[in-house]
Design a protein around this nucleic acid. Sequence first.
DNA 1: TCATGGTGTGAGAACGTTCGCATGTCGCGA
DNA 2: TCGCGACATGCGAACGTTCTCACACCATGA
Lengths: 384, 384
Amino acid sequence: MEDQFDSSQVIMEVRAKVAAKPKATIADVARLAGVSTATAGRVLGGYGYTSGSKKDQVMKAAEKLGYKPNALARSLITGKTRTIGVVAGDIRNPFYAFVLRGISNIAEKEGFGLLITNSDESFEQETRAVDLLVEKQVDGLIVSPCDTRDSAHLRALHASGTPLVLIDRAVEGLEIDRVGTANVSAAREAVQRLIQAGHRRIGLVAELVEEAEGGVVSFIARAQAGEPVESAALYPSWQRLLGYVQAHLVARVPVDPTLVLRAGEYSAEAAERACLALLQRDDRPSAVFTTDGTMSEGAMAAIAKLGLSIPTQLSMIGFDDLDWMAFLPPGISTVAQPRMAMGEAAARMLLEQISGADIPPRTVLMPASLVERGSVSAPDTSLR
Amino acid sequence: MEDQFDSSQVIMEVRAKVAAKPKATIADVARLAGVSTATAGRVLGGYGYTSGSKKDQVMKAAEKLGYKPNALARSLITGKTRTIGVVAGDIRNPFYAFVLRGISNIAEKEGFGLLITNSDESFEQETRAVDLLVEKQVDGLIVSPCDTRDSAHLRALHASGTPLVLIDRAVEGLEIDRVGTANVSAAREAVQRLIQAGHRRIGLVAELVEEAEGGVVSFIARAQAGEPVESAALYPSWQRLLGYVQAHLVARVPVDPTLVLRAGEYSAEAAERACLALLQRDDRPSAVFTTDGTMSEGAMAAIAKLGLSIPTQLSMIGFDDLDWMAFLPPGISTVAQPRMAMGEAAARMLLEQISGADIPPRTVLMPASLVERGSVSAPDTSLR
DNA sequence: TCATGGTGTGAGAACGTTCGCATGTCGCGA
DNA sequence: TCGCGACATGCGAACGTTCTCACACCATGA
């Protein structure tokens, strides 16, 4: 028969003992080294004056105890965390992945940590993310805002003096450092290339979340009428649409609004569905231009599904230089954004703000380059 | 003539005033609400007892002052930061991007922050990253270790009681929670599929950083001789090589070691170079199997460059389900790892550790599924 | 009437750093 | 010899929370 000894209490104690990890503090090190905490702190923290002899003692003691500084306590008093927060749309999207990598490059070099969150392009999630980061006292934020109009939380943030850099998108009337792409001109040049190759009916596959008053048709009409459009605070996909219209305008080619596709939702599947419908029309376009990586992916899926051959049956220019564009025969021409450099630029600007430099708001618009491969040729004359 | 007044001093003062942002503290709120800091803390922190009336006063005061809790101070005393640290290889790699997204999903749901670093598969960078995260007092770490043998820093970390989960790779003799892929069986099944289709000469494109004693040839020889290979702590690419050999063994097909390619370095370019050489040989294989996404990309680039058509001239099975594999004609069959689920599993395990659950070390090996598309057919009989 | 126990409140310590200040000790030029 | 600045050290306060106490209030039931 087993004895009645209840082992749970003992086990709890053992566990507690195992779990106990008496991290060494500066006070411990100081005690062992026989100096004051202030002196130990000066040695370990590398500030103030310290003599060689004491320095040795302290270092030795720290080594012995396996001392690791507690950044929390340090930050609490210095008011600096050496951490920057980032709100991206979705890390899985190569655009953000590369931007993040760029930010990370700079952060790492400067010894900063990186607190990363996803907004999924949802305003509510973005707000929550910003709150989280602010509570964690990040020294600054890099945000890809999902709302380019209101974004009261970002205005408040900036007003409170928190270093803040916007990436990819701007916020209307919020004049702060930001880095983006020269979308209008990049898109214009790409579409011009298509027109120059002889195309007159060019499809556009774009995300185009509803925000321009009057919708796409009215937007196109206004742009086509040569009305000056305030494009700076537009969503990138709208800016690229603007470039598309401008290219037509310059070449005096009319825009057929039925050729511009709103995926409506930001996913390759949505783009594929929309594109599939477009390419099955009798009067289908002889070329397509897509306004970002995700749209390019969706469009490509649709093209593959229909078995259309590029460029003989359909010319195409994509956006963002995705890996497959290089080797998918015949090579997909595309507008390449310097994604990683954008992240690096944003991080550098943020660090400048953090270090206290008082610089007027800068807008860095990076040039996107058209990398030409084999997906553009003259339109198939047998068509229409 | 301009006056000599030096404005710089004045400007400095103005700037300092602008930069001043007197964040409200609990003490401020308490003062305004006419209660003690303890009571205000109880209301705002949601712990202990508070009466409805005081709660109202405090909330109102907090609202008025725009109070935001300082997580630093909270963490300093509670010893919990509600932040987890991640050391990934490179965010740009879709594998890590998806894993990170999985981790982020769980973290966000539980209100945890995510401190992300890249190791670039460099031991030194990994060590620095871990140090940074530890100093920032993360509650736990998810690491994709770049060294599967030594990794003294990870052993020490675990010994100190820090919650730790390994992902993708294991560390020899370090028995802690980890999540990975059933690499051997996944690779074996993929290669079996190739053999079953009639292929006898199957190329393998793998990263294979040098670590098995005796190198690739000796490793193959031992595996082929049926020697039991301790595969758990092997690098994934070696495990996949093992599966490749096993498939040959089962089917009694001899392995030609010259067909297994070491990219040597972890990049698509290296894979492309190696693959290009292989596919230009007179006795080139009739099929290739690649051991991860990056290798698949490189191999595909080589195939495209040579203009080989899949599957008539060359069959292929890739690893990781990359976007283009779905639409690159004729569709690339591949071994799909549940990348995001892996991240989620790792995060969940870590959070369990953090919450104090005392669970024996678990190894979660996720099944990878062979998604069959059009890239496998019988070998071209005109060959060899 | 008196313990009892849940509820509510505040004073003050604690977390692990850095910072301000006071107090030295040098060496050097006047 | 004095004064002065650079170097060196320690004491105790601060950072903004939460935690531990001590105490007080109020029902409840014996």
